[in-house]
Design a protein around this nucleic acid. Structure first.
Length: 376
RNA sequence: GUGGUUGUAGCUCAGUCGGUUAGAGCGCCAGAUUGUGGAUCUGGAGGUCGCCGGUUCGAACCCGGUCUUCCACC
């Protein structure tokens, strides 16, 4: 069994569970640091483990396919060995990057034709070759190839896009079933619910995704600009249909408040660039709210970034020092901010898990969300 | 000392024939950011146009004086 639900919250749809992979166990709810190009930017593996308490990280098919490319990763023996990370890895399929990064992308029934953002070279992703690439990368969890429609999309386009994603899913599942892992460990395929912000489409898509009976399921196409309430509503609609006994992964989300609201609605897995990318640019997440460390008011604040953090980094360096580093464009500033934010995200989902197990999640969530959204 | 040159936002500089409320980039002060291009976007503050006087309906712009920057020559 790949996933076990250990405890359900009495008042919300939150649950605490455990995902089992070939590279280790993942307690849920979990936040997965994004390591796009085979690195969580600026962070040593020992800090991912020791300071941040990460259980799984992401890699990205689009980026790794373009650089260093399939040959190098295969020769290295897969991404785990290439990057010397022996804990779980999830790879995104590249569907989102084709939508968000690549130029001149063109969608056809066969797949997506796009130009590299690096050198303009032309490439094609299909459901089949995206599975092949993810076999080469060797992630423990791999994602189906989907189209992430922009927000807003009208109902007609959202329907058409969803149906294409569904046909691509059939091909992904078939190809995944017909191919073998390259490095001797299982690779679980997660399909992705689409349907934009339309409840009828989300229901159809959730049923389609559930029918594949994969080990876990993902919800995509959210947090692309729609109001948060709309996102929460879509999560509720979808999670009524997705099976209870399998992990649910909400892709690309989100703010700390988004994550707690997602957990309350039955989400188990999250990833987001926000703690790292926004951290590099001076946005810090704390229990007292959001800090823009670039703001003048932190110039002479010599208190720790987060005195209560389990991360030594967050307890050691002061806000004034971090502000100086970030404003000066020093590498260390990006590192410290990233470690702090990721440690904060992990502490948040870890505490959520504890509250669920205690049976106190609902009340704690409401109190915590309020504070998280404020500005410190 | 003589001749030339320069002076406009914190910095580097535009500024038409003399014509409405003098602009840009960077910096500064804020805001945004959601399956990562160490990114991008949005807004704001900031001016005695070196100074004094003159010409003109009107001067950053023309004239005189003065200070200043840099260059060349003595």
């Amino acid at each position: 069994m790949m996933f076990r639900v250990e405890r359900r919250d009495p008042l919300t749809s939150a649950r605490a569970g455990m995902i089992h992979t070939a590279h280790g166990e993942i307690p849920t709810p979990v936040f997965m640091p994004v390591g796009t190009a085979g690195t969580v930017k600026g962070i040593l593996h020992r800090d991912l483990v020791g300071e941040i308490n990460a259980h799984i990280i992401l890699g990205n098919t689009y980026h790794l396919y373009l650089r260093p490319g399939r040959e190098v990763i295969r020769e290295a023996g897969g991404l785990h060995r290439f990057m010397a990370w022996d804990m779980p890895i999830l790879t995104d399929s590249g569907g989102y990057q084709v939508f968000s990064l690549a130029e001149n992308r063109k969608l056809t029934e066969e797949g997506a034709i796009f130009r590299s953002h690096i050198d303009g070279s032309k490439h094609t992703f299909t459901p089949e070759n995206v599975i092949d690439i993810q076999r080469i990368i060797g992630g423990d969890i791999i994602m189906a190839f989907d189209e992430c429609p922009p927000y807003p999309s009208d109902h007609a386009y959202a329907l058409k896009s969803m149906e294409l994603t569904h046909r691509w899913l059939d091909r992904c599942v078939q190809h995944w079933g017909e191919t073998d892992p390259l490095y001797g460990h299982d690779q679980l395929l997660f399909p992705i619910v689409q349907g934009s912000v339309y409840a009828d489409l989300r229901r159809l898509s959730a049923e389609k995704i559930a029918s594949k009976e994969m080990a876990g399921n993902a919800i995509g196409g959210l947090s692309v600009g729609e109001p948060a309430e709309m996102m929460y509503e879509m999560i509720e609609v979808v999670n009524e249909i997705l099976p209870q006994d399998k992990p649910r992964y909400l892709m690309g989300v989100g703010t700390p408040a988004n994550i707690l609201e997602g957990i309350a609605r039955g989400i188990d897995m999250f990833d987001c660039v926000m703690p790292t990318r926004n951290g590099r640019n001076g946005m810090l997440f704390t229990r007292e709210g959001i800090i823009n460390i670039r703001n003048q008011k932190w110039t002479d604040n010599f208190t720790p970034i987060d005195a209560t953090s389990f991360s030594v980094i967050s307890r050691t360096y002061t806000k004034a020092y971090l502000r100086h580093l970030i404003i000066s464009g020093e590498m260390l500033g990006a590192q410290i901010a990233s470690i702090h934010n990721l440690a904060f995200y992990m502490s948040l989902v870890t505490e959520a898990r504890e509250k669920i197990i205690e049976g106190n999640f609902g009340k704690w969530k409401d109190e915590t969300v309020k504070k998280l959204s404020e500005r410190a």
